[in-house]
Amino acid sequence: MPTLKELSRKPELFSPGHRLCAGCGASIVVRQILLATDTPVVVGSATGCLEVATTIFPHTAWRCSFIHCAFENVAATISGVESAYRVLKRRGRIQKDFRFIAFGGDGGTYDIGLQALSGVCERGHRMLYICYDNQAYMNTGIQRSGATPCGAWTTTSPVGKASAGKRQRRKDLTAIIIAHNIPYVAQASPSRWNDLVTKTQKALQADGPSFINVLSPCPRGWRYESSETIRLAQLAVDTCFWPLYEVNHGKWRLTYRPKEKMPVAEWLKEQGRFKHLFREENKWVIEQLQADVDRQWETLLARCEG
């Protein structure tokens, strides 16, 4: 694990001047991940905030080879790049080593891109897939996704007389990918940069597919001040809403244990999208969210200790 000082001296593959919002979690996540690479990389991105804000023709923020194809297929597209790499290396047409990283938002990963990602995991391509999970379709203007927590306001799960935000629970994508039995799966947060960098390095070393689900706070969609991104990411970790763990070749390990497990309401109350939950009639949603977090945390602890 390099020191922060060492990382700060590395050339950045993700250049400033891109047009992601101030305080965007995704840009911080991408910087941290690319700083963890030592071998040349080819990066792919699903359609989404990251892609549209970093490649506005004739500009590009990528100081490495980059491909965007469509929304649901970044996993498949990069699997094609990785396959080409293997055969061209075998046939002696390229000599250098490469690593492959696919980025997708939660819409492009939990929902429309899930099939392509599952296919990649099953086929065993050596590539790292990063989901930057900002918990809604932010690029199209904050619509609910399979990653949106229960109770969250979005433009397609609005709050009204007959609605307290999203009615359904979010899906546990990390668990879905773990079920594919690939070499390396982890959950991470940009607030624990050293944890994310270490996990990225482990993932890139894995001889097969790897996946990291990274919480990526979004000031616009979550409704908070853009200076609070890292604090909100850490609150999600400290409330155990977003536990940091890894499954390395089948071995579960908690990579960070909060000193004190905070109530989930501490994270919720900082975000405008959950404001309505603090009204008396909606308090049951917070209770349900807390119960879910408690149960999932206990399950995770048992797995990591067992």
Binding site: I67, G80, A84, L88, A116, E122
Partner: peptide, 25 residues
């Protein structure tokens, strides 16, 4: 000695073809 990618859909077939072709294959 082709790399044969037995994909999970035609959408992924063409997407993988695009990635591979853009790589110089």
């Amino acid at each position: 000695d082709t790399e044969l990618i037995a994909v999970e859909s035609e959408h992924s077939a063409m997407s993988a073809c695009i990635g591979a072709s853009a790589s110089g294959a």
